[in-house]
Design a binder for these strands. Structure first.
Lengths: 78, 78
DNA sequence: GTGTAGACTACGGTCGACA
DNA sequence: TTGTCGACCGTAGTCTACA
């Protein structure tokens, strides 16, 4: 778990947070709808978690984006 | 871990296998270069594993594709 | 070259409480 | 509303061995 890895996970966390705020959800709401715990959602957004694919997919569904989008750099023109 | 989940993971496994064969690597070679065990790579390709993001990224690097591409449906025109 | 099986360790993910 | 801490449990991921 080097710096590079952390940056990658932090990027994913940032995508999640952006989408969550855009939908005006709390971490607890997102967690509830995704079937994941509130504290877990928070730690993902902070880039502290090496999320597994199925959990990423659960989040992506609630956020209404394809799972792959949570792994890609944000479009500068967005 | 319902059928839908399995299909999703199987899809990821298929992308990995396609890329690996395209690069003419064995599972053992891919595992070695990615820093993952041979038997683990095999189980991922069979869709049996809920891979974590950092492991997906390790595989993507050796396969020379962005991690997100391993989560997307194959382009029919590819 | 790949699949399977078992045993093992590390960490993904849950949960309750308090700031 | 979010972050943090600690205890807990299931599984991601390693490794050896055999078909």
């Amino acid at each position: 778990m080097n710096r590079d890895d952390k940056q990658f996970l932090q990027g994913v966390g940032d995508r999640v947070r952006e989408r969550r705020l855009a939908l005006k959800l709390t971490q607890a709401e997102l967690g509830k709808r995704a079937g994941l715990h509130r504290t877990f959602v928070g730690s993902v957004e902070r880039g502290e978690r090496n999320v597994a694919l199925l959990s990423l997919r659960k989040l992506a569904r609630v956020l209404r984006v394809p799972p792959a989008e949570l792994l890609t750099e944000p479009d500068p023109g967005a």
